[in-house]
Every structure is written in C-alpha cells, then in structure tokens.
Write a protein that binds this DNA or RNA. Structure first.
Lengths: 223, 223
DNA sequence: CGTCCCCTTGAGTTATTTCAACACTCGTGG
DNA sequence: CCACGAGTGTTGAAATAACTCAAGGGGACG
C-alpha cells in the first residue's frame, strides 16, 4: 500500500490517471481534476498526510478508517458512487481512506477548490453544505453507536444503505462483515448472527452473504 | 420549556436580550447580533425547528441532544464558553440544544452570517473551518463510542474537557452524571463507578462530585 | 424537619464479546 | 480435474463488560 503522494509523485499518469477532466463536486460546481483507479484495499490517502486533494467516488466504494494503537478500528463512513469525501478543510487528514472494492476516484486539487470558493459565493455555499451534510450524517451515526442495540444497528445500516443506492430488488454489499462490524461498533460474529436472525425473522433474505433483499417489515425500522 | 421562537416572538427584549452587539464568530469575523440568558435545562433551539440563528456561548455550557422515540438520549457535544454552535447550514435543526447551566448566549441571524460569507471569501473560509472542526471532533467521538471501554471513555472525556478549559488545578464539571453518561454512551451507574475506580487508582481526586483533579497518569491516557 | 434531586454502591442479569471450530468460495498449481 | 491454502462467513459455548434493579447517602431548599 503506497500513498497517493508517492504514486503521483513517482509516476504521473500511472494507475490510469487522466488529467484535464471537469468534475462536478456539487450541483453546478464543476472543477478541473482527473480520475484514478484504486484496487480493492488500496489506500487513497493516509492519516497525517497533507490534505492536498478532495475526492469524488465515480464508481466503487470507499471507507474512512481510524485506528487505535492496539489495532481497534472504527470506520467513520462509507462513500458510494457520487459521494464527495476528504473535504474536512484541515491541513492534514485525521483518518485514512481506503478502497472497499476496485474504484474509480476523481481528484481535484484543494487549491483549485479554494479558488473556486473564493470567486463564487454560491459555489462556496454549496461546498460548505457538503461538509454540513457529512456532519449531520455523523451525528446520526453517533446516536446509533451510543444508544442502539446490535439488531437496530444492523437494520439501520441496511435501510440507510438501500436508500442511498439505486433502487433494485436486491441490495448488494460491497463491504465485508469486518468492515460492517467496524462501522457499527460490533464484532464480525455479532454482525453475522444478526444477519442470520433477521433472515430467520423474515425481515430479509440472503441469497448470498453479499446480496440482501429487504422485506417490508425492515423498511419500517426506526432509523 | 418554550422554544426560542416563541420567546423572542412574544416578548422581544425579554430574557435579558440585548440587541446591537458585535459577536466575534471566528478570528476576525465579527457579526451583528445580540445576547440572551438561558436558565439551566432551558431549550435554546429544538429539533425540527428552523435554523434561523447561529449561536456562541459567552458563558455557561450547552449540550446538543438527540432523542429516540423510546427516550434513549444521546448528547452529541458539549459547548463551552467561546464555542460556536448551531452552524450546520441546513434549513432545520436535526437535534436540540439545551443549557447545561445558566448561560449567556450570543445569537446572530443566519441571514447576517450568509451575507458576510458571500461578501468576504476569507470570512466564508473561516466559518466553513468551524464546521470542519466540528466534523473532526465528531469523528474522534465516534471512535470513542464505537471502540472504547467505559474506563477509556471517561478518561478521554476528562482529558479532553480539561484541555478545552482554562488551566486550573481542579476541573469543574458543569454537567450531571446523566449528561456525561448520555454523551459517552454509558449509564449513570457505570459513569459513577468509573469515577470511583479512577480515584481508587489515584488517577484523579474528587473533592466533590462536580470537582475533579486530574493526576499525571491520566494526562497520558490515549485520547 | 422533610422532600427532592443527584450520586454512589451492591447484587444479579444480559447483550455482546471472545475463543474455537467448521463451511464455503475462489484462485493456483500439481 | 482435483488438492490445497488463504480469505471470508457462520455457528456454538463460555466469559465478561456493562446494564438493570434496588437501596441508601448527602446536599440544597422550602
């Protein structure tokens, strides 16, 4: 796992990078950038690394990761196609971002974004709004982590994911049980058992471990 | 507990409100607003309420509260003197804010803040930065809620609080055990037991339940 | 002096974790 | 084509951290 810095520093154009694209970060806010491919589990940026870019998922899925010195891991968010991330406005990243599956990611230099925000108040407002939306999502998640049971956490996770994903009969999970567990503050065993229980209770069907069908009763779950 | 809307709607100038002050929201960003007093446990704004104002704590302490329909409560953050809050940029608040103790709060109309941000790119950047800082704080807290033990949560809480507070020998807690528990995702009994344990282990002294002295060993706790 | 609120402590319960074993899938290479 | 191993997911049994329920202490205040 080499960092992005190293990649584009040593081999510009490697990794399938394409320059000169316009990336739409918010409705009506298109910025000059380029796209890159990342393999499953590849690091997109690292904790402590300088935040020189902002990112948008074109395809695939990304996880934000924080790790404690003894290895305990917390995933702060999953970013799916269309989501913007890495927009915390600090000098350095406080967490790392990794590709959950093979991804195509658009990158825009922070300097480009800053200039756009400076020149266009409306654009600045929209970009700020993206940060604010992230904040609200995190607040929801805090309630989940602090006060919900394992069953509620998993149910919420499924409902929220399905609402962010193009409507289709089956929801497919790009992430492993381990990722889900570290997102929900549980162990993989508890996540697995909870899926089994939801299936026994006819709240979901599981054609395979990465493919889930949500039944009506789950849609009513307290989000 | 009446809402802010009702208060200033029905009785402008009540509650000790004073108009025409300049409030410094970020370094170098002063906005026209006014101050109000809130009593202990009084609601400053409510969930679902329109976000017409942004706020700054002049004195006292404020808690952000989310409640589940069955009464489970999660406190998202405590705001102390000098902190800005209510800056989520959405149309409505997604949580409520309440005075932990008697407070003096500065209010600025969102329209005033928006205009300032529109006219001055640097100011907009600083205000955005406030939102970004909140985001980072929440991310830290998520790791705490998802992956830390009761002992670690309480220790982190004390260390973080003491680092935000003017240096003094004893740290005084404006909030009750119940507030701390709902902030840390624990019960009041567990919080109380953990304080007792920290004192037995000579990590803190507790002259009274709201006054804590942190010893060196605690300062080294993994934050 | 009594009441209310908050905090502490003890004992028993429980949800979740831990530890351990096993099943399934998917490449790779014999 | 099958054997093998690594990675991933499931399940069971035992352990435990935190919760629940219950009782009592102590300060503030009328």
């Amino acid at each position: 796992m080499q960092t992005l810095q190293a990649q584009i520093g040593s081999a510009p154009g490697a990794n399938g990078a394409q320059a000169g694209k316009l990336i739409e970060f918010a409705p009506g806010v298109a910025l000059a950038g380029f796209t890159m491919r990342f393999e499953r589990n590849e690091e997109i940026f690292a904790e402590e690394e300088e935040a020189d870019f902002v990112y948008k998922v074109m395809s695939g899925a990304v996880r934000d990761v924080r790790i404690l010195s003894d290895g305990r891991r917390q995933i702060g968010a999953f970013h799916l196609a269309g989501d913007v991330f890495g927009l915390e406005c600090g000098e350095t990243h406080l967490y790392s971002a990794e590709a959950v599956v093979d991804c195509e990611i658009a990158l825009v230099r922070r300097s480009v974004l800053d200039k756009a925000a400076d020149q266009d108040g409306a654009a600045a407002r929209k970009l700020w709004g993206l940060t604010a939306r992230d904040l609200q999502t995190l607040q929801d998640h805090m309630l989940l982590l602090g006060r919900k049971t394992a069953l509620e956490r998993v149910a919420c996770f499924l409902v929220r994911l399905s609402s962010r994903t193009p409507a289709s009969a089956t929801l497919d999970l790009p992430m492993s049980r381990s990722d889900i567990a570290d997102y929900l503050g549980l162990t993989i065993e508890t996540v697995s058992r909870t899926f089994t229980q939801l299936e026994r209770d006819r709240a979901i069907s599981m054609p395979s471990s990465r493919h889930i069908v949500l039944h009506n009763r789950l849609a009513m779950a307290d989000i």
